[in-house]
Nucleic acid binder design. Structure first.
Lengths: 139, 139
DNA sequence: TATTATTGCTTGCAAATTGCAAGTGCAAAT
DNA sequence: ATTTGCACTTGCAATTTGCAAGCAATAATA
């Protein structure tokens, strides 16, 4: 992935420099909502990311401090990827994307349940989920 | 721009299929916050989009119904690009991106003012700005 | 202990996308 | 009648993506 200089000082532009692509937020989604944490986990996702692209995205996310690479407790052959406070703070954005998508796409029933919960108590939902995710990274 | 089929049914994935790139949201930003509405306007933005990329993004946004192409009241040589309800509904996402960026980047003073306003009354800010944008597209 | 999986990548290569520069066609101004 | 402005299009090189195969380091199995 290109580790280019930023294109402007605009907050949107700076943000897109970090996660403005088709894959990065899907990896964050997998970690946030589906408890995925290994290279193999991410490869298995429905969208079918290519292995080299996954590697480059994981590197980019690590450089941007959105994820951390740790040794896996189960095995030395595995690598554990973990969210950071910086990526947990993306949750409000990701929730809003869900709400927008809910308005303009057909959403599968089980995800719709979560979206409804987020819609009927957005702040509560974000707060609760944030705390849960923070617990996971409490060293 | 590739008008591919969607990669999965995931709401995040579907959304990224539409605006998951480095440029699309910048065009929406220009229209929302800086009242830009013509091809030439977008070309002038700080990030320096290439003319062919701009053309392909405008086409993509139009196909996704995030913008509409209208005749410009001032001249037949000009084209007027306008937001739609669908893109106005992206405002909450864009606001949250601003808030995230505010936490992790240095933000220029004048934009910081707007961000503060959004932070101290998020719902109000979004509601007011949404109504203002809707007025612009009231036929 | 030797062999076979599993895991997390890397490498090679073709195809697609991006970025840059130049050009084109129509409308408007001079 | 000529020049300028506007919205693109085109050509081409460079970069990025996607697919398939390969590989080194554990870990599991015989």
């Amino acid at each position: 992935m290109r580790t280019d200089r930023k294109r402007s000082d605009c907050p949107i532009s700076c943000s897109l420099d970090i996660f403005g692509d088709k894959w990065s937020l899907l990896i964050i989604r997998d970690m946030m909502f589906f408890n995925k944490s290994t290279y193999g986990d991410f490869l298995k996702s429905a969208e079918g990311i290519a292995t080299n692209i996954l590697a480059s995205r994981l590197l980019g996310l690590e450089e941007s401090k959105l994820i951390e690479k740790l040794e896996h407790p189960d095995s030395k052959a595995k690598v554990l990827y973990r969210l950071t406070q910086k990526s947990i703070d993306l949750l409000p954005i990701i929730v809003e994307i869900h709400l927008w998508a809910d308005k303009y796409f057909e959403i599968h029933a089980d995800i719709k349940t979560m979206i409804k919960e987020a819609k009927n108590g957005k702040d509560k939902f974000i707060k609760t989920m944030t705390q849960q995710l923070k617990r996971q990274i409490a060293t």
